[in-house]
Amino acid sequence: MSILEVNHLKKIYTTRFSGNQVQALSNLSFSVEEGEYVAIMGESGSGKTTLLNILAALDKPTGGEVLLNGKNIVEINEKEISAFRRENLGFVFQDFNLLDNFSLKDNILLPLVLSGVRYPEMEKRLHPITKRLGIEELLEKYPYEVSGGQKQRTAVARALISRPQLVLADEPTGALDSKAADELLQLFNAVNQEGQTILMVTHSTKAASHAKRVLFIKDGEVFHQLYRGNMNNEELYAKISDTLTMLTTGGEQNE
């Protein structure tokens, strides 16, 4: 069953000073099945960030639709969009986006506070997640007191605690050292195996090699896609590298 359907998505920006039009997305279509782990790759300027902003309901397309469990998020009005985001989407960002004046515990619980969830239910959800992520002993600390890897685990806990339909990850390993990045990718694999649907935008071939499917975006369209199938991470890594070479050297489109 498709949890996310992107149909004929277009986005045209008009530059502020010259009035020139720039097409960031052109007739982009794909779907994501419930429980999938999909990575999106492409060169800078390929439309990845624009796509992520539209999927996150932070921007609206010029044309097309985005269906999350059948609901067209493009048509949700401004009054309802924040609540929809909190209740249906989880976010993991490269720069963590934690509030420095909040403890890790308060950062994690913030989506539930904003949704009006009662405190006993918050506590019930908090401890299994933080124990699983290895940050249970750090909850009273503040973001500036912990490592980058611990900050990102906190961000993952915040993304998961609202039990979202879809987790959107934007370069989640970008600010981490190699050890912390490996730990985060293993964590994503484990969370996905438990049924969480993940869509990750990344420049990292290593990060993408952990996904079940890799979509390559070029000039605002799907250029190619790879399915893991029976490949291990090393084999998928090699396939991704070959596709990126084809993408940058102008190889033929192959969907």
Rank of each mutant, 00 (worst) to 15 (best):
A238N: 11
L166D: 01
D242Q: 08
E140T: 15
R16N: 02
L89Y: 09
G116D: 03
R153N: 12
I161T: 10
R132K: 10
V92F: 10
F223Y: 14
A24Y: 01
N72K: 09
L109Y: 10
D100T: 12
G251E: 05
G174S: 10
S209M: 09
L244M: 13
H224E: 10
E78N: 05
F223P: 03
D106V: 02
V146H: 15
A190R: 05
L236K: 11
P143D: 02
N107T: 02
G174M: 09
K131G: 13
I135L: 15
D170M: 12
D59K: 09
E255C: 04
A181R: 10
A57Q: 06
I161Y: 09
E183S: 07
G220I: 14
L58H: 06
L25E: 01
F84V: 12
G90M: 07
R228F: 05
N107C: 04
Q165V: 09
H127C: 03
G134T: 13
S46H: 10
I40Y: 00
L104N: 03
L104H: 04
N88W: 06
E123A: 13
I135A: 15
K48S: 03
K71G: 01
G250V: 08
E145W: 04
A157F: 14
M1Y: 03
M1H: 00
L99S: 00
N7W: 05
T173P: 01
N254C: 08
V74L: 11
E183M: 07
A83P: 00
E87P: 00
Q21H: 05
P61W: 05
S178P: 00
Y237H: 15
V214Y: 07
D106N: 06
I198F: 14
E171M: 11
R86E: 10
S162Y: 02
E145L: 09
L244A: 04
T197E: 05
D100G: 12
F84N: 07
A180G: 07
D177E: 05
P120G: 08
N53I: 04
L28I: 13
L58S: 04
P164Q: 01
P128H: 03
E136M: 08
Y227T: 01
K10N: 10
G42L: 06
H203G: 02
Y37T: 05
D100H: 11
L184S: 02
S26L: 08
V117E: 14
L244C: 04
D219T: 14
G174A: 11
L226S: 02
V32Q: 06
L52H: 13
V22H: 01
M200C: 00
Y13K: 04
T130F: 13
D177N: 09
Q165W: 01
Q21D: 04
P128D: 01
V92E: 06
S162N: 14
L126N: 08
G250I: 10
N97A: 11
F96C: 11
S31K: 15
I40E: 01
A57F: 09
T154M: 15
T50A: 03
H224F: 09
Q152L: 12
